[in-house]
Amino acid sequence: MSRPQRPVPRGRRPRPKASKGESYVGKRFEVEIGPVAHGGHFVARVQIEEASRVVFVRHGLPGERVVVEITEGTAGDRFWRGDAVSVLSAAPERVVPPCPYAGPGLCGGCDFQHVSLPAQRDLKATVLREQLVRLGGLSASDPLVADLVVEAVPGDEDGLRWRTRQRYATAPGGARGMRKYRSHDVIPVEDCLIATTDAREPAAGTVVESVVIGGVEHSFEVAADGFWQVHPGAPEALVSAVMSALAPAPGDSVLDLYAGVGLFSAFLADAVGPTGRVLAVEGDQTASALSVGNVPTADVTAGDVATVLGRLEEGPYDLVVLDPPREGARRAVVEAVVARTPRKVAYVACDPAALARDVAIFAEHGYRLRTLRAFDLFPMTHHVEAVALLTR
């Protein structure tokens, strides 16, 4: 679990780019909102003279008639971005955002505050299905795709008060605040409703996190500014899903890749026992060093995962855990994994597109997706976590 600690992503900030003609920023159009797209927005089309232009719209819902204000776009761009600033015909799933800072032109942290919680999970499942079909090569009729649901995870309050770590920006006047979507502009925020009331801001030093699975408790020392899942129910949900998928047995050898501070390694080491072996590989030097103390029975190696696998002995491993950052494991790592001929691979994914691309690479080498679970670890945002099992 090596993804760096960061606030809920607010979208990539636009890079300066050469002008491509007349700017349409600020112009408004009446449109019908189409399907959800990866990234927390929805697809719509604006008719400009003889041509139509795709607009990725925030704060809409499929089937709605809205007035969209263009926030990025010129005459020469392939697509534009916009905000639904007025709803002419609302979808039944639309609700009043619980947070006063959520909406067009306000805080960019939450994509789906205007959507009922069950509908948010349906939207996330739709995106995950679409990516698996489009990029992963799966059939839409495959039960793993067609029957996929995003599971609620205990630990939040109706989708709020789940973020145990939170980073704030400084607003004009010195107040704490949050940035607008794809912007450096900061708006004052008195209370972020997705943050727990005792949420910590990143700091120096370490903290201790405890996780209990099946009556067994492990404690983990974590850098206060390092990565740890921010939803209180996330560690238990993910470890339980990985252990259920892999079913490790005494004597098994396990590769735990992107191992972070050793969350999966600790419970895997229990399962494989003294006759088994767990090798944990993590690129972050601090997290890797902490994992030595957190999981003293594991072999720990610090370094880039692809590089470490490239020099690792060719002997087989029974099981592999992959928990890569948002860009996924990618080809070099996937091919190094399949070269070890594991009987099972558990893939923990925080990005549907990256998961789908890596599933396709695994398929090239004879590994197929066998089970897939998705978890709503980031309510009110478009983000979703998944645990996939691949076998030969």
Rank of each mutant, 00 (worst) to 15 (best):
I361W: 03
W162E: 10
S23Q: 06
V149Y: 05
G155V: 11
D122I: 04
S89F: 13
V36N: 04
S244N: 14
V321K: 14
I361R: 09
P188W: 14
I70P: 01
G34Q: 01
T275M: 10
G260F: 01
D83V: 04
A102M: 00
D256I: 07
W80I: 01
L355M: 08
A18N: 12
A75R: 13
H59D: 00
A249R: 10
G34N: 00
V54I: 12
A204G: 15
G34C: 01
E30W: 12
R326A: 07
A259Y: 03
E236F: 04
Y24E: 01
Q113M: 08
V338P: 02
G177F: 06
V272A: 13
I213M: 09
K20C: 05
V145C: 13
E236H: 09
V216K: 15
A102E: 02
V207G: 10
Q166H: 09
P35T: 06
F375P: 00
A356W: 10
A18D: 14
G293D: 10
F375T: 05
R179M: 06
R340H: 15
W228G: 02
R326Y: 06
I194A: 03
L268E: 14
V96F: 14
R200D: 09
T301V: 15
G155K: 09
R165I: 04
L128E: 05
Q113I: 02
F79A: 15
R392H: 14
V334Y: 10
V337T: 08
V127H: 02
F267H: 04
G315W: 03
S288K: 06
L106E: 03
P235C: 04
G205K: 13
V295Q: 11
C192L: 10
S253E: 13
V292H: 14
E130S: 12
T126G: 11
R370M: 11
A146I: 06
D111I: 08
E313R: 15
V278N: 12
H59A: 03
A298S: 14
H59Q: 05
L377A: 07
F375M: 13
S219G: 10
A37N: 07
S52V: 09
D191W: 03
